[in-house]
Every structure is written in C-alpha cells, then in structure tokens.
Design a protein around this nucleic acid. Sequence first.
RNA 1: GCCGGGGUGGCGAAAUUGGCAGACGCGAUGGACUCAAAAUCCAUUGGACCUUGGUCCGUGCGGGUUCAAGUCCCGCCCCCGGCACCA
Length: 917
Amino acid sequence: MAAYDHEAIERHWQERWEADGLYRSTVDWEKPKHYALTMLPYPSGDLHMGHWYAMTPSDARARVMRMKGYNVLFPMGFDAFGLPAENAAVQRNVHPAKWTYENIDRMRHQLRSMGAMFDWEREAVSCEPSYYRWTEWFFKRMFERGIAYRGEAMVNWSPTLQTVLANEQVIDGRDERNGQPVVQKLMEQWFFAITKYADELLSYEGIDWPDAIKAMQNNWIGRSEGAEVTFRTEAGDEIVVFTTRPDTLWGATFMVLAPEHPLVDSITSSDRREVVDAYRVAAAARSELERMEDTKEKSGVFTGGYAVNPVNRERVPVWIADYVLLSYGTGAIMAVPAHDQRDFEFARQFELPIIPVIRPQGAAPPAEPEMEVAYVGPGEMVNSGPIDGIETTNAKGRANPSIAATIDWLEKAGAGREAINYRLRDWLISRQRYWGSPIPMLHRDDGNVEPVADEDLPVVLPEDVEFEGRSPLVTNEQFLAAVDSEGMPARRETDTMDTFMCSSWYWFRYLSPAFEQAPFDPDEAAYWLPVDVYTGGAEHAVMHLLYARFFVKAMRDMGVFEDTERVMREHGRDPSGLFDEPFVVLRNQGQILGEERAGDRLVVDGHRADELVVASSIRVDPAAGPEAGLVVGELIRRTENALQVQTEGGLVAVRVTEGATIDIPAIDGTNDVTQLKHHLDIERMSKSKGNTVNPDELVALYGADTVRTHLMFAFEWQKGGPWDSRGIVGSSRFIEDVWKLATSGYQPGTVSEEASSTLRRRVHQAIVKVDADMMDFKWNTAVAALMTLRNEMQDALRAANISPHVWVEARETLLKLLAPIAPHITEELWHATGYATSIHLEPWPEADANIAREDTVTMVVQVNGKVRDRIEVDAGISPKDAEATALASEKIAAWTEGNTVRKVIARPPKLVNIVVG
RNA sequence: GCCGGGGUGGCGAAAUUGGCAGACGCGAUGGACUCAAAAUCCAUUGGACCUUGGUCCGUGCGGGUUCAAGUCCCGCCCCCGGCACCA
C-alpha cells in the first residue's frame, strides 16, 4: 500500500480536471440549473484563511448539488478597484494597476490550489475596461432614469493635502499619514436615489434570507411615519422638521438644528455669533459616529434666535447641537422634553422649560419640576388646544388617534403634512479618487452636465499618472479635456465610483465576461438566473446586500432584462418575479478572526514636522522607558510607511522615510518597516489590519484536502472564530485514515451477520446525517459524522467480521460523502478502486430509511427530573409500556420507596420522568 | 450610542429546538510497541466527595416559568460584526 502523497495527488487531479474541463458549465436546458455564488475577493495580495473559510464550504455545497444532478455554475472573479491600491501607489510608488494585477495573478494561483470547482472561463475583473465599460453604462442608464443625481454630502477633508480622506484613513480626527487635523466639509457629489426603492426593499417576498439580515436591513432603511411641520423664524425663514409625534407639538419648548444647517448663520444673533461659530468648528472635527457615541453628556449652544410654534404661536428658542445630524430627516428637530428622553435630558442640562401634554390613563399629568424621566406611554392629550382629550396609544402613525387628529389639523391649517421618513439615505457613489470606475459625465461650459455618448464608453482611466495624495484625475489635462454633444469644449467628471457599484452587478458579468453587446448575454442569463445560493460574510449584511437588491430592481425597471425574458419564454420558462431579487437563498458565514497580539514597543528618533514625527531611526525595545527617544510606545497600526504609536501622551503619527534605519534585534540582517509588528485585537482578518493567516504553508504541509476539511470541521460555519492552527492534526489523521481504510484490501475472517447489518445501519445513518447537515451548511457536524463512520469502519476492519459487499458499500459511501469536502483524495481513491470516471460525476448516495432505523433505544428514566436509570427498550414502545418498564426498575424503586408517585410523564422511547413527593 | 450576533470542559465545539449536557476532534495523563524518538495502537480525561458503585455541583451573572431549562421569560455583565469613503 502506497503512502498518501497529498502533493502529487492534488497536483495531478487539478491538472487533470482542468484538462478534462470537468468544471466547465454550459447552458443545457435539458438539465435543472443551479447558480452557486460566493462573494468575490478584493485582490489584497495573498489569499488568507478567511477566503478559504468563505469559499471552500461554498464549493463543497456546489459539488453536492452537482452530484444531486444539477447543472452547476460556480464562478469566481475579483473586486479589483479600491483604496489599498492607491495607498501602495502613494507610499511605495507602484502604479495601482500593476499592484492590482500582480495580486490577482498570485491569488488566482492560490485559488486554484484550493481545488475548487470554479469555472475560470467565466472570470470577471472589475478594473478591466471591458468590465467597467458596463459599470459606466449602468450609471448612464441610472442618470437617464433620474436615479443618479448631484447633491451635497459631508466628506473628511484634509486642509493640508487639499483632498478627501476615507473614514479608515482618519484616526482620532486626524490624517493617519501626517497627523494633521481633518474637518467635515460639504461637497457636491453624485448620488443614487435608493430611497425611491425604500418601500420595496422592506419586502423579502420569495427569498430565503436569514432573519438577522432582514432585521438589519429593515433597521437600516428605518421607515418611520409622522409629519413634516413648518416652523418660522422671527425673520420669516421656514424651518421644516420631521417628527413621528406631531401630536406632542403643543409640548414643544425649543428647537435644535444640526450645526451645519443652512439657517444657522442667519438665525444666530450677533452676541451669540462667537459661541456658535466655535461650536460649529468643534462639531466639524467630529465624525457622525463620534457624535452619536457619547450621548450621556449633551452638548449644544443657543443661537440667540427664536422660531414660532405654528400650533400655538409660542416663541421657542433655537439651539444647535451635534446630536442632530444634517443627513437625517430635515436636519432640524422640534424638542418635546416632557415626552422624549433625549430632549428631556437636553432640557434638564440647559434648564429649558418642560410642558407635559399627555396624561397617563387614570393618573394626573406629569408635574413639573418633579419629572425625572420623559413620559412615553399612552394616555390622553392635555394642554393641546384642538386635540385636547383625544386618546393617544403606542401605535405609530395614523393608527394612533392623537397623531391622526393632529395631521388632519396641520393639513387644514397649512402648517404641515403627513410624511414618511427613512433613516436610509441616498447612496453616495462619488469618490474623489483615481482607482475606480470613471463616472461617464461631462461638465459643459454652460454649467450643465451631460452623459458621455454610449459609443464613447468606456471612459478609460489614464495610465500615465503621478500620485501625491490628490486624485491625479483632477490635474490630468489630457483626461479632463473633452467635447460635449454640441461640439463645445467640456471637462470630464473627475469623481470615480464607489467600488460597491462594481460589486452590485458582477454576477451578471460572470454569465458572459466577454460579451460586447450588453452587460450580459441573454441566452446565458435566461438559463442561469437568478442566483440560487449566495454565500458570504455577515459583515456585508447591510451595505453590499442592500445595494445589490436595489441594483437588480433598478435594472428590472430600466428594462435590462427584456431580452432575457424573451429567451426564457422561448424555452418555456416563466420569467415573472425572477428579476425582483438577485439572490434566492442567502447564507452568511461567520468570520475567521485574527489572533490577539501586542505590538512592538518602538523607540523612534527623528524630528517633528507639525503634527507628524519623521523618523530617522526606529528601534524595537520591549523594555524602553518613556524617555528613551523622541517617541516611545506600542505600535498600534501601520499603513505602508505610516505608523500610529501609542505613547503615554496619546497617539502619535510617525512617517518612516526611505533612509531611516530600522533595528529589530529579534530579526537578523537588515530590517525594514514591514517587519514591525503592530498591535492586533481579536478581529476580522484583513490585509489592512495585517492579521491574516496564509494557508499556503498549511497546504504544503498537509494538503488542500486536509485544510478544507479542517476549516469545515473546526468552526461553526455561521459563526466563525479566532484562528487556531493546533487542531488541524485531527483532520489530517482523519484524511490519512480514509486513505488507509480505502487501500486496506479488506479480507473478511469469520463473517458476523449482526456486525454486518450494524455497519450497514451506520452507513445509512451517516448518509442521512451528512446529507441533511450539508444542505443546511452545518459543515462541522457533517465532518464529525464522517469521522464517526471512520471509527466504525476501523473497528470493523480490525474485527474482520463484515461481509465483503457491506464493506464495499461502506467504503464507496464514505468516499462519495467526503468527495465535496476533500475532492482530490476521494478522486484518487475512487480511481484506485478501478473506476474510470470521476467520483464528482457520481450520483449522491441515498439513504434507505429501513436500513438506517434503530431497533432498540436507550430510554432514560428520571425521578423528579434527575436521571436515575437507563433501560434498553424497543424503539416502538408505547407510552403505557414505557411507564410500566420504568416503574418496574429496581433502581427507580429505591428512589420512589416511601414517596407517593404523583405524576408520570412518558415521552417514549427516549424518556420517562416520575414525579414523587 | 444604535442595530445584529454570541458567551457551554484546559482548547475548537455538539445537543433532533423544552427531554441523557459535553457527540466529533485537539491537548493532557497513563500504558503497549521501540535501544531510543517520531508515528501508530489501547485506556482515562467537566469539577468535588466517598469504598470498586454511587452522591452532589456544573452551560457568562442574578431572578423566574416548568414534571423537566444550555434551550423559554425578566434584569445585568462581557466579547464580536456593522454604523453609510476598508471591502
């Protein structure tokens, strides 16, 4: 018997499958189709454990479906535009395209080593002009339908670099590269009107998605019913507020505007100007997340201005506070401190009046100044003029009598109207960057914008560019210069698109990546669409998955699927409802998290340049005191050559120049900046966090089959967890054992009928369990069931008392059930047994329920809920017999003696509980 | 802060959804084989107590419902993911 040589076997079969085109998927209307899709990776450089964890179970699932008789499409590609490529360009002087394509080459190679059944003929790469031509085309269609429009949004603005920074480039309100402050600034940009689809996105009809994902999307969309009410400043300007509780308008005692609200300037009185301006500057330095984070301590300032409450002509002071966000609602709120906890706390802190307008059922109205919390329950309206005495409930919107009455009153009085507000904001797709799909728009001399003509698509990114921080598109005259539809000079749009745009339609491009007449070939689409199973990380629960749903709905409404529908009808397939949602079944895996690690303690010398320290030398010294150098502390984060060091005085940004000396005593030879270890929390693996685990070494050591098996065995797939490489030997032993079992050349001794039928029963039980678990994405218990079968077969092999045909059935079933998880070794052993065709073309094993059934069961007998005996009983035992059997037990008698049996609960055949007392 | 998920042996985890807590593995301990080591095989392995057999305790913490709670309810603590320019 030859030893198991994983390296030779895996190489051989990967080459053979490729040569045979085993995984090529072609349209075949005679067979049922299955489109399996797993989220495409960003080409960050190396494939890490997280990719394997996400992809190999998806591959295994696709393989099971194939063995079940489906024609399976399982493609792969790269989401290739994005920020890391530009970081590399800015700081290492590598062109983003070069960096990206080199990474893709490496990752393609690594992906092949997984032994997955990807159909590489269908690969799509989003940064190729043949791909982004259609991303641009979709933008144009969106523009034509009024979905793409220009509007204003806040950006992280670096005044020193005169550029926009991504959220992850801002640490502690400062640019991570140069330590300079970052401010929030309004800028004109492109949006998609996803809010037009808000209501449709709240419905999940016809799709099987996890409840948690649906809940998160619902919360993200955040539909709320209420009213828009118009207040007027004393100067006569309108302030529109949205409120879900218009019925409490009579209790509104002040207003709060977002600090960026356009009316702040005009409403602020001269004596308050200085305070207000200072507050606005401070607010601009904080991100929305930071503003929402610390809500215990309210901050805000009075503008000195007043507005008039339209329901009672009361004069109310107007404040600004950063807990009111310009991007939510109208950026202004009316404050009813008596019945809203946040307003209540604000009022208490700044000593503003509180007027209760709801009397709780059968109680006196809350009295001032004794109130301790806002009253948010039901009751009856008081102090509220025309709606006095009307009941108020916990219902939302018009379903609440008091709200319905108020809306009617407001509409009649012309002071407001019923309104629905969404937390969901329109999708900001502009990025002030180079490495993204260009937005195919022209700015005409007359100030209008117009789209680039279809025949001029794609607008191609210029290759000859320099990177300093700002997008090179802004200064590239050759790129900028264009001619509009009337032959007049025009300038190109320099914003590029959010990469979520590229990943919102990629599974259509997989259908026909070389197709030139449209984004996808209708002949392919008619057969394969929609995606049957989509798998990917739960971190995409809201944004990517919501954008993808929006995109398909918009495509449907733009008529993009008309040809596809025609082809479907020609083949007798009914297209209705097939283009409302992109993914029929969605399952999320958890994440493989990186292990925790402390960062190196650095001693940095050099010189200060503004907020930044430019390093001339860096030494790693775990014992260094705080005075050992210019900057001393733990390395928290590193992006290329920009370091964040945690010193006693706070975070310090350090830039490592080319000539700087790096000294890491633990690593011999010349050290460089990439060898510095930065702090790692237990958190998701990603290249930018530097906590990835590379599977290549493990593949070299144990083989891809073992790595695949281990990833599926060691975690609950939907949950994930921190990576720990120790347990892999268990999976390795399992794979080795399968090799030994299948190559043992079983020779029976004295055959036992009982032992034979027991093994046969175990084999069929394994089929039931493995099949159910795999269909349900429970990979760890599927592998455990296969290991149990392995144990049974080892015992049988040793006893040599199994009839030969039972042994053969056991061996072949084990190989087939394992084939989706460990495709190479099972293929090798299948052929070694004498079969000439691939195991991956074999039909999936089917269990015989009669063979799988157990005749006897261990029945547990409890006394007062505690297990006191176990009795072997017939599996079909009646409740009466079960009870009698339990009461007849001697062990039970010892516990019931001297006590009255009050009750017997029989749940045959598993359990009987006797209650005594 | 808001939304979602989670917390079970020394470790990764199971538990047919209210019915034997710890399947399947890792690690550890003892033994076999070996000159020896590795590999392999056998046994034990949640904790405490006593006599072999058993008793009591045990699923983040505190309460509750139930014949029966890891599972359901109420209140708390901690960890992870997302929060709109990382993808």
